[in-house]
Amino acid sequence: MALNLQDIPRVKTITKEGFLKHYFKPQKPVVIERYIDDWPAYTKWNLDYMKAIAGNKTVPLYDDRHVDYKDGFNEPHAKMKMSEYVDLLKQEPTKYRIFLWNVLKEVPQLQNDFSYPDFGLKLMKGLPMLFFGGRDSYTFMHYDIDLANIFHFHFEGKKQIILFDQKQNDYLYKIPHSLITREDIDFNNPDFEKWPMLKKAKGYKTDLNHGEILYMPEGYWHYMRYITPGFSMSLRAIARNPKNFSKAVYNLLIMRNYDNVMRRLKGQKWIDWKNEQAIIKTHKKNGIT
């Protein structure tokens, strides 16, 4: 048995009006296949280019270890020179990923390789973020703290994507006071005996290739697995839905700080309690005792 996932719709290209009408307003994901062919990045951006232009930069690395109470919010697990990291990606599978790397701040000349597309949303131009991963590395199922509209541009190789909207929260074993599901769920091959409510969740899937753009609507859960080594860039626009915007403000100002305080006060007991509550609350909402 597999997750109940439908293919994310694909278009070759799209107008601003078409995007707003068919995808932004109904808050549905889409893959745009041929929108950035005229960007210098389309032909230049690969791992070798990143090594050449940013090889001396120290980059933050994350792996798939479970949350530890001693970890700060989004605190990296390791650091490495970009040149060493690219070599590692090419040599062997590695769990290390680069997560939320601000490309403009670190390597300003990369700005010359892309432009900000006009999809009818005001993109945050100070926050183009890069994400890198080795073969079979993956992100836990999560949604972004600001519930932004996200445009995810993929470069080099292939990446597996699974998405769920916020309406599926009751089935995903969401961790309370957090942005993730249970970390021991393998969304690539879920154990439905252990996680029976996943059978009720309805989501989306696709494989993202070089030069393709994935639009993820506000607050969408996303799991991403690198089928081959590669990297992506995300551009974001603030949540327009008032409910999502207020939730983003709550996450940033209250939830994140409350969670950090509880980690300091209760340590690993806080993490363990949250993991237990993810199961208890999910099963209770679905009539399982």
Rank of each mutant, 00 (worst) to 15 (best):
L179I: 15
F132R: 00
F151L: 14
W273G: 00
Y23I: 03
H66T: 13
A52F: 07
N286F: 08
K105N: 12
L265W: 12
Y250V: 06
K167F: 10
G134I: 00
L89Q: 05
P40F: 04
E84F: 01
E156L: 05
R34Q: 15
Y250N: 10
L47N: 10
I161Q: 03
P76S: 09
Y35D: 03
H283N: 12
M262K: 13
I98K: 00
V30M: 02
K122E: 14
M216G: 03
F119T: 03
D146C: 07
P196H: 10
Q268G: 08
K125W: 04
K281E: 12
K105G: 04
G267D: 05
K281N: 12
V249E: 04
T181R: 05
F164N: 05
I53V: 15
N209V: 03
D144G: 11
N241C: 08
M262F: 10
K81W: 03
D165K: 08
N46I: 07
T228R: 10
M80W: 03
E156S: 11
K199N: 09
K105R: 15
T15K: 05
L121C: 02
H283R: 12
L20Y: 02
T228E: 15
Y223K: 07
K205M: 13
I280C: 03
K125Q: 14
R236I: 12
Q166K: 13
N74V: 08
S234K: 11
N209F: 15
N275V: 01
T15I: 05
L130T: 09
Y204D: 06
K243F: 14
F155S: 02
D272Q: 13
W273K: 13
L127V: 07
I254Q: 07
F187Y: 12
G120D: 02
N112L: 11
G211H: 06
T282E: 04
G211E: 02
L198C: 06
P242L: 08
H210V: 07
D144Y: 06
I32Y: 01
I254M: 11
F24M: 04
F132W: 09
Y42D: 07
L208N: 05
T43N: 15
G72T: 05
K281I: 07
Y96P: 00
D118S: 08
K199I: 09
Q6Y: 09
G287L: 07
D71S: 09
A78R: 12
A239R: 04
N286E: 09
F140Q: 07
T43R: 15
E276Y: 07
V59E: 02
V30K: 00
K79H: 15
E212D: 11
K158S: 14
A248H: 08
Y223P: 03
I185E: 03
D68L: 15
